[in-house]
Amino acid sequence: MTFFGDRSVKAEAARAAKKVALKPTDQRKTIKDLKVGDTAQIVDFIIENEPVRKIQAMGLRRGKKVTIMQKLGRGIVVKTSNSRIVITVDVARNVEVK
């Protein structure tokens, strides 16, 4: 049995809807909007789905500074502390930064 894996879809949707109401998703700056060489700080996660929970466990957490090392196709290499993580655009647009 997974620990966090079985949260209800409804709750997720409700939360996502609330956030959208607070600030439209397209106005929030995400990792997807950063350029190679940019450094920014993670402030929030727009949708906390499975891949987002995975990258959190891999070290991309609230308050962490990230640097964009390379972008290629749908892949983005993000560096935080001493680890480098490849994420795809569909994951990157759920990570809000400032």
Binding site: M58, R74, V77, N82, R84, I85, V86, I87, T88, V91
Partner: peptide, 9 residues
């Protein structure tokens, strides 16, 4: 599906 992977040093 999405793609998440670590790059080692």
């Amino acid at each position: 599906s999405h793609f998440v992977m670590e790059l080692p040093p």
